[in-house]
Amino acid sequence: MVLTDTPAKLVYERPEALGTTVTHYCPGCTHGVAHRLVAEVLEEMSEVGNTIGVASVGCSVFAYNYFDFDFVEAAHGRAPAMATGIKRVLPDKTVFTYQGDGDLASIGMGEIVGAASRGELITVVFINNANYGMTGGQMAPTTLPGQKTTSSPTGRDVKRQGYPIQTAELLSTLEGSAYIVRRSLHNSREIRRAKKAIRTAFEVQKKGLGFALVELLSTCPTNWHLTPVEARDWIEERMMPVFPLGDYKISSAVADLKV
């Protein structure tokens, strides 16, 4: 029963920067959580009106419909190049890409490595859900050994299909990267840590400290053939051993940053 005679204060509401469009994401898909965290962080930093987002190709192809600020839509994998172009001509704007694992770690590996190595002052929100979501659950560069997908129907055979790419670890070796971390969206504690990381990644850009990327382990209940709740357990039990959460690159300037 909601008490109508007792004053109440609002402690949380949907961020305005998220707009009012219902997403096309499946029930329980944590893309929505990642969107919300980006919107909250930009609001808290008062950067909403100063931000240009770069959407990518994959399930997040319509991200620009869900954020209430300027957006462009990149070709598959090319978001970091597009973001580079924007940031170089508008250095005072906050520019970020929002990319999935097929987009960033397969077709777009050249662009993300290029951007990171140049130390582009952009923020990358990277969604790792271990498959190609939009096209219906094919094997991605992040698909786990043994994981069944529609293009690895008997399970990813590492002898024939290779091993998953650990993006955060890989990019952390580049001098241009200032802040590279992996977080997860599978419970409230990790979501809060993810938000702090996203905030840091945007602060790194604001302060001009270098390239920043937050890899987020994210659920894909539909293509994993799990309920939304089971999918969160799958992240913890199956994904986290292959993709350990942690801070992979904190440059000394970032370490001094107070967020």
Partner: peptide, 17 residues
Amino acid sequence: ICATVCPDAAITVYRYD
């Protein structure tokens, strides 16, 4: 917590004063 984990930002939270 419900609002934190909600993937669709559907929840508004109030606390009584």
